[in-house]
Design a protein around this nucleic acid. Structure first.
Length: 418
RNA sequence: CGGGGUGUAGCGCAGUUGGUAGCGCGUACGGCUGGGGACCGUGAGGUCGCAGGUUCAAGUCCUGUCACCCCGACCA
């Protein structure tokens, strides 16, 4: 993308109404726009980051048999009444509204009920199981107070996968598989080193569950980490019973603050009971479907990644999620420089390498500042100097020093045939 | 939902004892400059959050209301 064409712009000042570093930087760099507290719009560069995160999750969900769907945000109350969750006393974050005729509707805060109900159309025999539908959906939760920028919104994106299994054994095998897939997701997002599978409370679903917690000073959860076993225990279930069951002593654990980036729950037959989701077993008897749910918040991850890697110059995106791999800073508009920069841009673009091409008529300092603020992994300068030497100047976002490289070397290093 | 704070140009802000609104950034045009957000000049840009009240006169005082931020409680 040519920056002369991009409609967003960076700003020097940080927004006054944000204290969360992730929101400040993302707004300053033009990645997002704040619509209201806890509600953010994604602008071109921000949408690219979000899409990259979504795609990584999609890859891994597909790899374990997930089938992508898209459920509705508008929900009738019937299915929720069946499980007892329509009541504001049970679920206190509902946004509710109604049709012209007066029928009550809710903006879905999650999707267990409607999906379970939907699956009744397709699950009638053991031959129909297991099934692993998942979606990326906007969830609406009327939080009393929203904060931390993208990390706790009233409207946010969530990947939720639901497993429908014949029995507990089949469920547990998938539960483990999904857990492994989550590890891959966080590795690919660059958070693997600081993300721990965490033993946690099952909330309204079951006694225990697992969360994936990423160590971060802006986190809202307290966890106890066991480095050797690469696992952790959430403070809410930090007790002797849990410690004993995991074969761990308190002395081996270190207290940390963390952000919940994923969770996996065993739902068992809670929803199949409530909504009568049954199947005919091999012997002809009617059995309840055994369920699980598995969530990851891509928008929260975007905020966390922004927050975690940022430095005093701005955002620093891991390569896998960056809106572009390369930032071409073209200094000046001498014909030879323009030609050299255009050639580089065209070669990379043709090869599918994401590029932000700064072809704007502004001073070099501004281009460097924007390249840093936007957090693009590799910056390549094309100028009179580089053209005269028949080279390109390359600098990685985190490095101080630059390096002169030939066009071929640059292309090869980016996986493009020279 | 309790406590505290803030709403003035696209963004960041100033505005004294009430007297009819200003600065920086950005933006338009011209000049100059050309490797870390330069500089000079000339412009455009406002329902002072909203509603009511007091007053000859309200950005400024009073009442109500909406929104935003922080701390707490709650929460993927």
């Amino acid at each position: 993308m040519r920056l002369s064409q991009l409609f967003t712009r960076t700003t020097r000042d940080t927004p006054a109404d944000e204290t969360a570093r992730n929101a400040q930087l993302l707004i300053q760099a033009g990645f997002i726009h704040k619509e209201m507290a806890g509600v953010y719009a994604y602008l071109p560069l921000g949408k690219m980051v979000l899409d990259n995160i979504v795609q990584i999750i999609r890859d891994e969900m597909n790899a374990i048999g997930g089938q992508e769907i898209s459920l509705t945000a508008l929900q009738g109350k019937d299915v929720w009444e069946a499980s007892g969750r329509w009541s504001d006393e049970v679920v206190d974050v509902w946004f509710k509204t109604e049709l012209n005729g007066g029928s009550q509707l809710g903006l879905a805060p999650t999707h267990e009920e409607p999906l379970t109900n939907l699956m009744k159309r397709f699950i009638s025999s053991y031959k129909d199981l297991p099934a692993y539908p998942y979606q990326f959906q906007t969830k609406f939760r009327n939080e009393l107070r929203s904060k931390s920028g993208l990390m706790r919104g009233r409207e946010f994106l969530m990947k939720d996968l639901y497993s429908f299994s014949k029995d507990q054994a089949e469920h547990e095998a998938f539960y483990e598989k999904c857990s492994e897939a989550y590890v891959k997701v966080f590795d690919r997002l660059g958070l693997g080193d600081i993300t721990y599978k965490t033993f946690a409370s099952g909330g309204s679903f079951s006694k225990y569950s697992h969360e994936f917690q990423t160590i971060s000073p802006v986190g809202e959860d307290t966890i106890y980490v066991h480095e050797g076993k690469k696992l952790a225990i959430n403070q809410e279930v930090y007790n002797d019973e849990v410690l004993a069951s995991l074969g761990i002593t308190k002395e081996e654990l270190v207290e940390k603050t963390a952000v919940e980036v994923g969770n996996i729950f065993t739902l068992a037959t809670k929803y199949s009971d409530a909504l009568d989701l049954n199947y005919a077993a091999e012997d002809g008897s009617s059995e309840k479907v055994f369920m699980g749910s598995y969530g990851i918040g891509p928008s929260r991850l975007m905020g966390l990644i922004a927050e975690h890697f940022a430095d005093d110059k701005g955002l620093v995106w891991p390569e896998n999620v960056a809106p572009a791999k390369v930032y071409i800073a073209r200094l000046g508009d001498n014909p030879d420089v323009v030609t050299a920069a255009d050639v580089l841009y065209d070669r990379l673009t043709a090869a599918g390498v994401g590029v932000l091409y700064d072809d704007r008529a502004i001073r070099p300092g501004e281009k460097f500042a924007d390249a840093d603020l936007m957090g693009i992994p590799k910056r390549i300068v094309v100028s009179d100097k580089t053209v005269a030497a028949n080279t390109l100047e390359v600098k990685n976002r985190q490095d101080e020093n630059t390096e002169m490289q030939s066009l071929d070397t640059v292309l090869t290093s980016l996986g493009v045939a020279a």
